[in-house]
């Protein structure tokens, strides 16, 4: 192994190095979430705007853009999880006998459930990808834009996908835990990358909470609005979903 390889290896195996990997990949995922929520909110601009946006993403850079983004996000997510799980295992080993009487002085609740909120969010992300990206439900996969039958009706898929209250409930739980995770995670990014001091700690913490709350409102506005019927007529969507079954 050359000296650069050795240095990278040492960096990965150091406590601070692994935490920096968690912070950098976390920052990448936060930036993705900000872009994702802005794009998703186009659902409120109507079917055409949403489907144009979905088509743009699919054909970005002649179709390679979306795969570059997907692979980049997958690598970031895997590194984030692998590094975190490794750190948690080290942390548990660092105190072999626990206190009989435990007291917390100032650690926030969100900070104390990071690994559990993170693992629940992972389960949610897998469900979300199967739901809207892989589209394991053929009813959602076979929707066509009424104005342009050659393209997928992403708008209709979103509305049809949120007709089941249990799905909406899982989204509420998943997004809420994601935002709890971020309320501590965003401020932690600044600390781990060495960009925190007493002067900026307050604004950084507020920024973390502000982003977490905005993401919570933005993401959950869609399933809630759909359930309330604000995004169109559900029966039409149901008819579109059921069409392939009738054809069979």
């Amino acid at each position: 192994m050359n000296s650069l390889g050795k240095s990278l290896c040492r960096f990965w195996h150091s406590s601070i190095g692994k935490k920096i990997v968690v912070a950098l990949t976390g920052a990448m995922l936060i930036l993705f979430l900000l872009g994702h929520v802005v794009g998703n909110l186009l659902v409120f601009a109507g079917r055409e705007a949403m489907n144009d946006y979905a088509e743009f993403l699919l054909h970005m850079m002649h179709g390679t853009g979306i795969w570059v983004a997907r692979i980049g996000l997958l690598v970031a997510l895997v590194l984030h999880i692998v590094a975190t799980v490794s750190l948690v295992r080290q942390n548990r080993a660092a105190r072999d006998v626990d206190y009989s009487c435990k007291e917390t002085v100032q650690a926030s609740k969100s900070s104390r459930i990071m690994i559990w909120s993170g693992l629940t969010v992972l389960a949610f992300v897998i469900f979300h990808i199967l739901h809207f990206t892989v589209r394991v439900d053929s009813g959602l996969a076979n929707l066509h834009d009424p104005a342009n039958p050659d393209r997928h009706d992403t708008f209709g898929m979103v509305v049809a996908g949120f007709q089941n209250p249990l799905v909406v409930l899982f989204y509420i739980v998943g997004i809420s835990l994601l935002c709890s995770h971020l309320s501590h995670g965003i401020a932690s990014v600044f600390q781990t990358l060495g960009w925190r001091s007493k002067k900026v700690a307050g604004p950084e913490k507020k920024l973390g909470w502000a982003i977490a709350i905005l993401l919570w409102l933005g993401f959950l506005s869609i399933p809630v609005a759909t359930m309330m019927g604000c995004l169109g007529d559900p029966p039409k969507i149901h008819a579109a979903v059921e069409e392939p079954a009738k054809a069979e």
Binding site: R10, H13, S14, S15, I16, K18, K19, L87, Q90, N91, A93, A94, R95, T104, V105, Q106, A107, S108, S111, R112, M114, H184, A187, S188, Q191, T192
Partner: peptide
């Protein structure tokens, strides 16, 4: 930092206890 890791201390999770 390397000695700290070798001693078996855990990692900071920014809870500031």
């Amino acid at each position: 930092v390397r000695q700290m890791d070798a001693e078996g201390f855990g990692n900071c999770t920014n809870q500031y206890e």
